[in-house]
């Protein structure tokens, strides 16, 4: 099955150099990026990545004495391509701050406490419906060390492989109704309003499974669609 990848609408993707994000002007190319004809190299890609990386469970909130501090939440994530076809069997890497807004990472500073019951990372496979579920705590907001005191709203990071090299995606998911969303320099680097709205998860009625958790649904669309057979 041939897969086609076409250029994206620029406004649906973030600016590369972001006002108020001081690292971006040093790291993003000055020269124009080069359009190239897609070849087999770009339209193939690693499949069965789980053979090369270790999966980490989808319940990262902990239980009982070892339960993480924060608002328990359950995320139902759906991964599809541009046809809306579920992307099953793909590796999704997930990471987030703890309930206080601190990452378990040597580069994070001591602005907020570490929760020793929370590492904040999962690596999962989507099922054949493109779904995966994550039981976690809602991440806290945190300050970005810039002079003018910018705060990141609660968000969860995703890295998704997809079917081919060009469908690889690194993105972030936001929460509905957060006052910090409107000021976040990373979310608002995407010029198109509707494209930004699609990065925000949906709060849905609790299902009772798992118990006592807020339930959020989110859809991620990877690049690529099936080639249309050429018309005679």
């Amino acid at each position: 099955m041939a897969y086609v990848i076409v250029p994206r609408h620029e406004r649906t993707q973030p600016l590369r150099i972001v006002p108020g994000y001081p690292q971006t002007p040093w790291r993003n190319p000055k020269q124009p990026l080069i359009r190239r004809p897609p070849t087999l190299s770009e339209l193939t890609g690693p499949s069965e990545v789980a053979k090369r990386v270790k999966l980490l469970g989808g319940d990262i909130a902990g239980h009982g004495e070892a339960q993480a501090i924060g608002q328990l939440m359950h995320l139902k994530l759906r991964v599809v391509d541009e046809d809306g076809t579920p992307v099953g069997g793909t590796v999704v890497e997930i990471w987030q701050a703890n309930g206080a807004g601190r990452y378990i990472h040597p580069n994070d500073d001591e602005h907020a406490p570490v929760d020793r019951n929370f590492y904040g990372a999962a690596r999962l496979l989507t099922d054949e419906r493109g779904l995966l579920e994550l039981r976690t705590v809602k991440p806290g907001a945190y300050p970005v060390p810039t002079k003018d005191g910018w705060w990141r709203p609660p968000h969860i990071h995703f890295s998704i492989f997809g079917k081919v090299w060009l469908s690889r995606l690194v993105t972030q998911m936001y929460f509905p109704g957060e006052p910090l969303n409107g000021q976040d320099r990373i979310l608002n680097a995407v010029p198109d309003t509707a494209a930004r709205a699609r990065l925000v998860a949906r709060l849905v009625p609790p299902t009772g499974d798992p118990a006592n958790a807020l339930v959020f649904e989110h859809q991620i669309v990877l690049r690529g669609r099936k080639a249309t057979p050429s018309q005679p």
Binding site: Q13, V80, E82, H157, V170, V190, L199, R225
Partner: peptide
């Protein structure tokens, strides 16, 4: 056709 999700920094 669905529109591909916006990228973000890692």
């Amino acid at each position: 056709r669905l529109i591909p999700s916006g990228e973000a920094t890692i």
